[in-house]
Amino acid sequence: MKEQDYILFENYILGDLSETEKNAFETQLKADSKFNDSFNTYKELSSFLEHKFENEAASTAFQSNLENISKTYFEKQDAPIKVIRFKIWQYAVAATVALLIGITVFNNFSSPVYEDFADYNSISLTVRGEQDALLKTAENAFNTKDFAKAEEAFRSLMLIDKDNAELQFYRAVANLELNKFEMAESLLTSLSKGQSAYKNKAIWYLALSDLKQKDYDACLEILKTIPEDADDYDEAQKLIKKLD
């Protein structure tokens, strides 16, 4: 291609050609396959560059987030393999050290903690196509673990839609994360007495609230009321075993 061709490509993409020039250009695209190929590649590269520089910040943020998650995940994966490479005498040393540490801080280690059991996932409150800014705010804040902001959004949302069980439940979780137990428990208690799909989940999280406050007896009492058909029944049994 000649220099003039590339200038023409650019003018065509930017819509800067007159009607006659445009028609001539399009005729040439149809007639000259080499011209056509070059134009398509030029266009593809233009859009590649546009994307590359426009989304640089978002793309960098994504990659660093991904890297962190990946690193943590693979470190966990690899951990047991590294242990296997230990020699026998190293085991003995490690075992002795572990035992000593275990004895001194036994109480801390033996108690299960809230973080091990709280297993809520990311939420999706907005319905496809329906654009509600406040729901979006709540969803994004919750999913990025900005629970203070999520709580604020949930509070406003519940002014409009106070009987929405989903909102009540996730607002309770956000409050639990913020250690606002009174608010969390009042929401969960009312859900646990209702008939919504969140009934059993609410009971489970009431137990987790006590767990987080280290009130193990109260936690056990609640755990025992979780019915066998609840999603979290197995987890609840596991926790009961650890607490007993």
Partner: peptide, 17 residues
């Protein structure tokens, strides 16, 4: 600047092709 832009993308087009 505008002419240079088309020529640079043109150069890139050639390298790729």
């Amino acid at each position: 600047a505008r002419k240079k832009k088309s020529l640079c993308i043109g150069k890139l087009t050639e390298l790729v092709q």
